Amino acid sequence: MLHPIFARWLFVDFDGVLHPGLAGTLCYRDRLEAFLLEHTDIGVVLSTSWRLHYTHDELRRLFSSSIRERIVGVTPALPDSTRAQRYSEIQVWLRRHGGGRRWAALDDDETLFPAFCDELVLCDSARGLRPAHLQKVAGLLGLPAAGVMAP
C-alpha cells in the first residue's frame, strides 16, 4: 500500500532514542512530536523492537492524537542473523510501501545499519533524542531546520 500524502519517511526506534537506554518513559516523545507537527509531510514508521511485542494500534496510542494518524506502520521482522538487520527491515518496508522518497532513521545502534549509512541519525543511547538529531533529520529530508531547537 502506498502512502501518497507523505513525501518523506522517518523510521523511529524507541529505546535510546525516545528515552535514555531501556527506561521505557518515552520522555522525548514531545520533542519528536513538535518536530513532526512542524513538518507535516513526514510519515512515521516504527522500527523499534517494541513492534515485536505490541500491535501497531497499541504503539500508535503511545503518541498524541495530533500525530497518531501519521504513524503508518512498523517495519517487518527479519531473522536476527540478517546483515544490517534494521536497515534491511527498512529497505523491505520501503519496497512494499513507497520507496523512492527521502528517508531517515533515528536509532541508537549503528550495528543494525551498514557502515557509513547516510540516512542514519545516531543517538547516544544514554542521552536519547536531542535537538541536534532533529536538525540532522531535517537536513537529510531536505527540510528547513527552523524550530527544531525547542526542548
Rank of each mutant, 00 (worst) to 15 (best):
H133A: 07
T75P: 07
G24M: 05
F116V: 14
C123L: 04
L52I: 05
D118C: 11
D124Q: 08
T111K: 11
L94T: 15
R29W: 07
G147E: 10
A34S: 12
V72R: 02
A104K: 03
A115C: 10
D124P: 06
L2G: 12
W103H: 12
T111D: 10
L122W: 01
A138Q: 04
A105R: 05
G16Y: 09
F6M: 07
R68K: 02
D118L: 13
F11R: 04
S88V: 13
W50I: 06
G142N: 05
H56K: 02
R86T: 06
P4Y: 07
D107C: 04
G16E: 12
G16S: 13
V74A: 06
D30R: 12
L78V: 12
L78S: 11
E58P: 00
A150V: 14
Q135F: 07
H19K: 01
G98R: 09
V44L: 07
V72H: 00
I71C: 02
D57L: 04
A77G: 07
R127W: 06
D118T: 10
D41N: 08
R95I: 13
D41H: 09
V12A: 06
E110F: 04
L32A: 06
R102I: 10
W9D: 03
R68M: 01
A126H: 11
A84W: 13
V74N: 03
G16L: 10
R130Y: 10
S66I: 13
R95S: 15
